[in-house]
Design a protein around this nucleic acid. Sequence first.
DNA 1: AGAGTTGCTGGACATCGCGTCCAGGAATGG
DNA 2: CCATTCCTGGACGCGATGTCCAGCAACTCT
Lengths: 198, 198
Amino acid sequence: MTAAPRRPRPDRRVERSKQALRDALIALMHEHPYERISVADIAERANVGRSTFYVHFADKDDLLVDGIDQLKAWLRERGDAPEVTPAHPALAFVRPMIEHAEQQRALFRALVGRGGAVQVSEELHRMLAELVRVALGGKATVAKRRPAPEEAIAEVVVGAFMALLRWWLERDSAMTAAEVEATFTRQLLPGLAGWTRR
Amino acid sequence: MTAAPRRPRPDRRVERSKQALRDALIALMHEHPYERISVADIAERANVGRSTFYVHFADKDDLLVDGIDQLKAWLRERGDAPEVTPAHPALAFVRPMIEHAEQQRALFRALVGRGGAVQVSEELHRMLAELVRVALGGKATVAKRRPAPEEAIAEVVVGAFMALLRWWLERDSAMTAAEVEATFTRQLLPGLAGWTRR
DNA sequence: AGAGTTGCTGGACATCGCGTCCAGGAATGG
DNA sequence: CCATTCCTGGACGCGATGTCCAGCAACTCT
């Protein structure tokens, strides 16, 4: 009953192939570093002709970007449940991200760890930095210049977080998610003290 | 008069070729991302036959590692002059690194920025983390487990630093080196408060 | 259910970068 | 000045990329 313009109803075959390719890439990234995975590998794992790959994606990186979009969607969907009030609005992302990472540990390690594609880490960094920046400074990006602009602070916070996250994911450290969060908060909250929004 | 074992006196041709290749890689990294630079490009820029490249280096990454070693040597050589007493021993590296980065801005941007080789950033990260870890915990790595091991703190500190450094290098921000340092210290020093060595 | 559209296939092809090898010529060190 | 070592450029095989096509299969829509 939607009044939306007619949608041609996507062809099942297309969806199946694309999804198979997405899944194949992720599966392979659990086994080999992104760099070493070839289009042929992906197609084979997906049970799809190599030609078919190029029907749907321009190249390996294109598929990756597509995958990143799915990850972003997934992260947004499990909207950052504000169950527990964060110690500081700029750190609201910490708890949910750590929880997601723990739930999908293997996936996150493959994506954001050593063998992962740099672009994934960069995009995640960008997303989080955006969140922090907004939490710190409000909407007006063009606000007055200060010695320490929100952007710089956001970089510090997110850089620290990503490094700690990677460290935690890559070693089989005995640290629990809660301990990781506590460590991070203990190290960064004090420095954010003066930044009670404005 | 050194009692060192006899050195076969290196052939000039070898040194010239190797150095030309090293320089060529660096020069090219100012223009293109590392990924897109081919061995042929490097050899051509160095005015050297492509075969010659493989006489001296196993592949592109091998040359890169060689370059990293030079960078490390350079950094050590300009020993971190302890002119100014750092706010905290674990932050002793901050001032010198920022100064080096400012002096060799273009180089650092090429090495550690977006188009740079991941390995360079990783190695730098490793080096700095090692410094911080030592400054925090002393020699005994095997010491008693604590909820927040030195390693984790070091990751936080260095991750934050690298992110801020990259951010600073990549935009032509009007921030001065001193301001960058101040921002970083202001954000991280408080969190290190309880960590007065032990 | 049938017609028409669309996607899948696998194989061929050209291109590129890699890493190896060699034999003749050039530079170097003793 | 001679023996050694390096440089060279070219050829080779390999693997990956991205394009193209023609026949077959699957799907959508009516």
